[in-house]
C-alpha cells in the first residue's frame, strides 16, 4: 500500500514536471480556464437579469463552471500524457517494472488533482480581480473539492480511453465527451431557465449536480446540504464507474 503511494507520487511528480517544462501544455492549462471565465462572464452577463438568477453576479455564477472546466482540462491532459507514453514506449518501461499496477493510474490522477487545484486558484484570483471574493472557508473548500473530484473523474475517463486506444489519435474523443458533459449540464444558466431538450438532458447529466453543489457553495458561502449531497452522490457514482473503466484495461494490457 505504501509502495503504491510512493510510486504514484513519483509518477504524479513526473507528470507535473512535464507540464511545467512544456510550454505548449502549460500555457493552455493556465489560459483556458481564465478564458472561459472571462469570455463567459463578459459575453453573457446580461442573462443574469433573468428572474431565475435572483440577482446573483454572473461572474460569481460562472466561477464554479470555469473551475470545473479547468479540472476537466487537467483530467484530459493526464489521459493525453498516458496516450503519448503508450505510443512512445515509456509506458512499456513502467509496465515491465515491478511498480504496482494501481500506481500507473493513480499517478496521473494525482497529477490531475494538483493541476485542478492550481487552475481553481487561478480562477479564484481572476474572480477576485473582478471583485468577487472567496466564498468563506467551507464554500471555498467545497469549490476546490468538487473541482478536484471532477479532475479525478475526467482523468479516469481519459486514462480509460488512452489505455484502450493506445494512441494520441483518441484525444478528440477524450476532449469532446468532457466538453459536452459540462455544456449539456447547467453551464450557463440555472436549471429552471433551461428550455427544450437541454432541460431534460441536464436533469440526467450528473455534472449538473456537481455544478449545482459547487455553485451553491460559491454563491451562499456555506454548505447548503440539500444542494450539496446530490453533487457528492453524482461525483461518487462517476468516480466508481469511470474508475472501473480506467482500471479494467490495466490488468489486461498483455492480452
Amino acid at each position: 500500500m505504501q509502495r503504491t503511494l510512493t510510486v504514484s507520487l513519483g509518477l504524479a511528480g513526473r507528470n507535473l514536471l512535464l507540464v511545467r517544462r512544456v510550454p505548449s501544455v502549460f500555457i493552455p492549462s493556465l489560459v483556458m480556464p481564465l478564458f472561459i471565465l472571462i469570455a463567459t462572464a463578459g459575453a453573457f452577463r446580461g442573462i443574469a437579469a433573468l428572474p431565475e438568477f435572483a440577482g446573483e453576479s454572473y461572474l460569481a455564477f460562472t466561477i464554479p463552471m470555469a473551475a470545473t472546466m479547468g479540472a476537466g482540462f487537467a483530467g484530459i491532459n493526464s489521459g493525453m500524457t498516458l496516450a503519448r507514453d503508450l505510443e512512445g514506449g515509456f509506458f512499456s518501461r513502467l509496465q515491465s517494472s515491478p511498480a504496482p499496477r494501481l500506481a500507473l493510474v493513480l499517478g496521473p490522477i494525482g497529477a490531475a488533482l494538483v493541476r485542478s487545484a492550481f487552475t481553481t486558484t487561478v480562477v479564484f484570483i481572476a474572480g477576485g480581480i473582478g471583485s468577487v471574493g472567496l466564498p468563506g472557508l467551507w464554500g471555498t473548500l467545497t469549490v476546490y473539492g468538487l473541482a478536484m473530484a471532477f479532475a479525478a473523474i475526467t482523468s479516469c475517463w481519459a486514462i480509460g480511453v488512452a489505455l484502450r486506444a493506445k494512441s494520441v489519435q483518441a484525444a478528440p474523443l477524450m476532449q469532446v465527451v468532457v466538453f459536452l458533459s459540462v455544456f449539456t449540464s447547467v453551464a450557463y444558466v440555472p436549471q429552471d431557465a433551461l428550455t427544450g431538450w437541454l432541460s431534460r438532458v441536464s436533469e440526467w447529466n450528473p455534472v449538473t449536480y456537481i455544478l449545482n453543489a459547487s455553485r451553491s457553495a460559491e454563491l451562499t458561502g456555506t454548505i447548503v446540504w440539500s444542494e450539496t449531497w446530490p453533487g457528492l452522490v453524482a461525483a461518487g457514482i462517476l468516480l466508481v464507474v469511470l474508475g472501473a473503466f480506467a482500471l479494467r484495461p490495466l490488468f489486461h494490457l498483455e492480452r
Binding site: 442573462i47 433573468l50 450557463y188 444558466v189 431557465a193 433551461l194 427544450g196 431538450w197 437541454l198 432541460s199
Partner: peptide
C-alpha cells in the same frame, strides 16, 4: 443548440 436552450428565455426578458 446549447446556447439556444440555455438562453431561450433571454429575448423579451433581458433589458
Amino acid at each position: 443548440a446549447i446556447f439556444t436552450a440555455s438562453f431561450g428565455g433571454a429575448p423579451g426578458n433581458i433589458p
